[in-house]
């Protein structure tokens, strides 16, 4: 698995409102390296700093201390070079743009010529299996379809890294499992490195090549668990004993953490 690290996080700490009575230490001394092509999930209870860690990697908020390197650059440079794409919990499509024009937004911002944009967008819509919806508007799509458009948008500028913050969290179980499968197919088609935030143990186990378990107050990395189930993973994977064993292992890592905390 591990080649060169594409993401390196060294001693990252994040405090909100430092020095005030509303001071919160969201992350404490995080070290994490992610290799190219990995599918890493950040898993942990609400408020443990998953989104904050992701936003620091994406240069959407600065760390209080420590350093991050993305693709060998500072996050700010990586952001300007459009080395990553981002998918949020809400699709966040521009309702005044058609699906096609939403998907091409990153290319348009980057100043890519119209013809190339159109070609790339068509390829992306094929990738997320929505080619016939290019001219629809967001209000005409279901939540799951909107989220697929958001994924197409995040991938349209060919980023090396894909950050996803609970991208399937707003979907029903059926849609969710379906999109999990789609996501793995897209990942294997594009060979993008994925950092995926989730609350769901099952989801993390099904998708990830590695799960980073986080503990709250302050946010720390409690465990890093390799998921050695073979890809491609299918509906059948969900029935394997090894799948359930992994779920148990991850649950114990999460649980041990809360027990330790209660004892403290």
């Amino acid at each position: 698995m591990p080649e060169s690290p594409i993401i390196r996080i060294d001693g990252v700490t994040k405090q909100f409102n430092p020095g005030t009575d509303r001071s919160v230490t969201a992350l404490a001394d995080i070290d994490l390296t992610i290799a190219e092509g990995e599918f890493v999930s950040l898993l942990g209870p609400s408020g443990c700093g998953k989104s904050t860690l992701l936003r620091i990697m994406a240069d959407l908020t600065p760390p209080t201390a420590g350093s991050v390197s993305l693709n060998g650059k500072s996050p700010a440079t990586a952001r300007r070079d459009r080395d990553y794409g981002m998918v949020f919990q809400q699709a966040g499509l521009f309702e005044w743009r058609s699906v096609q024009r939403n998907v091409e937004l990153p290319l348009q911002v980057a100043g890519v010529a119209k013809q190339e944009r159109r070609a790339k967008t068509a390829a992306m819509l094929d990738l997320v299996r929505l080619p016939e919806f290019a001219r629809h508007f967001p209000w005409q799509l279901s939540g799951g379809m909107q989220q697929r458009v958001a994924i197409a948008r995040a991938l349209s500028a060919d980023p090396k890294i894909l950050f996803m913050d609970e991208p399937l969290g707003a979907l029903d179980e059926m849609n969710r499992e379906h999109l999990q499968g789609e996501l793995l197919r897209i990942w294997s088609d594009t060979r993008t490195t994925v950092v995926f935030v989730t609350h769901s143990i099952t989801e993390a186990v099904f998708l990830s090549s590695r799960i980073v378990v986080m503990s709250p107050r302050p946010g720390r990395i409690a465990a890093s668990i390799d998921v050695d189930l073979p890809y491609p993973r299918t509906a059948e994977t969900r029935t394997l004993p090894a799948f359930f064993d992994k779920i148990t292992e991850v649950r114990e890592a999460l649980h041990g953490m809360t027990v330790a905390e209660d004892a403290a």
């Binding site: 952001r79 459009r82 990553y84 981002m86 949020f88 809400q90 005044w96 937004l105 990153p106 911002v109």
Partner: peptide
């Protein structure tokens, strides 16, 4: 969320005005 998206795309202020604020 839309602002954050534009920020993640390293959009310039002018682009944020034209592509996001005006249509909004």
């Amino acid at each position: 969320l839309h602002l954050e998206l534009m920020e993640s795309l390293a959009a310039r202020p002018r682009q944020i005005s034209l592509m996001l604020r005006l249509p909004n």
